[in-house]
């Protein structure tokens, strides 16, 4: 008799526990979402941009005769370089920046910036015109007393806008030996690489396939 009563209690406890576990657990720290009314659609309109608008394309730059190589290349745009200390990340004043292709040299101000100056857009003659037209490449050098000389290869020059590359310089420490220039290869834009691979693709090597949305 006692055994039967105990079993009944066990059964009811188990039934209650089973029904409780099937209920969703309230999660800690997760508040019930507020009632949300969908926002109205924004009426987007384009507008005419003035020539000084930062998104407007700049007119062609014609370098003066004081710029070395002014008659050597046909396409030019503006460039403004910023030089910073790679350890402190602070701007470096009075660093000398040189464009290797033209020999043009300039210095940075107290904010680490050079003035905006004309620089050529030299399209790589190794590639076809459509590919080379994406951007030009320049080599920049930076010098400052007490710092390693720095060379930046393949700096991308873009037509119709001001290119603003940063050069990071490393301070020379007493424990440094064999102090040679610090070299940085500006990475190729990924769209240039994608286009280059596509240009020489044969039909027998479709890769991801022309219709693949993952390409």
């Amino acid at each position: 008799m006692k055994k039967k009563g105990a079993r009944k209690i066990w059964l009811s406890v188990l039934c209650i526990a089973a029904s409780l576990t099937s209920l969703p657990l309230p999660l800690q720290g997760q508040a019930e979402p507020k009632e949300h009314r969908p926002l109205p659609e924004y009426k987007y309109e384009t507008f005419h941009r003035q020539s000084n608008d930062p998104l407007s394309m700049q007119p062609d730059v014609k370098p003066g005769s004081d710029i070395p190589g002014y008659n050597k290349w046909d396409k030019w745009a503006l460039m403004q370089v910023k030089v910073i200390d790679s350890t402190t990340r602070k701007p470096l004043e009075n660093a000398e920046v040189v464009i290797a292709e033209t020999g043009y040299r300039t210095k940075t101000d107290k904010h680490g910036f050079t003035q905006a100056f004309p620089a050529p857009i030299i399209r790589d003659p190794r590639f076809t015109e459509t590919l080379a037209r994406l951007h030009g490449q320049l080599t920049l050098l930076a010098y400052k007393n007490g710092y390693r000389d720095t060379i930046c290869y393949n700096v991308r020059m873009n037509e119709g806008m001001t290119t603003t590359p940063e050069i990071w310089m490393f301070e020379i420490a007493p424990e440094h030996h064999r102090i040679e220039p610090y070299v940085y290869h500006y990475p190729t834009h990924h769209l240039f690489s994608v286009n280059l691979a596509e240009e020489f693709r044969s039909k027998s090597q479709p890769g991801a396939g022309p219709e693949s949305p993952d390409r």
């Binding site: 066990w10 039934c15 526990a17 409780l20 576990t21 969703p24 997760q30």
Partner: peptide, 25 residues
């Protein structure tokens, strides 16, 4: 009946752990 309820209990716990976990939410 005892075993059946135990099985239901375990099933309920599994639902709680795998379907209603914070990661899933």
């Amino acid at each position: 009946t005892f075993h059946l309820i135990c099985a239901l209990l375990l099933l309920g716990l599994a639902v709680q752990i795998f379907l209603a976990s914070p990661e899933a939410r």
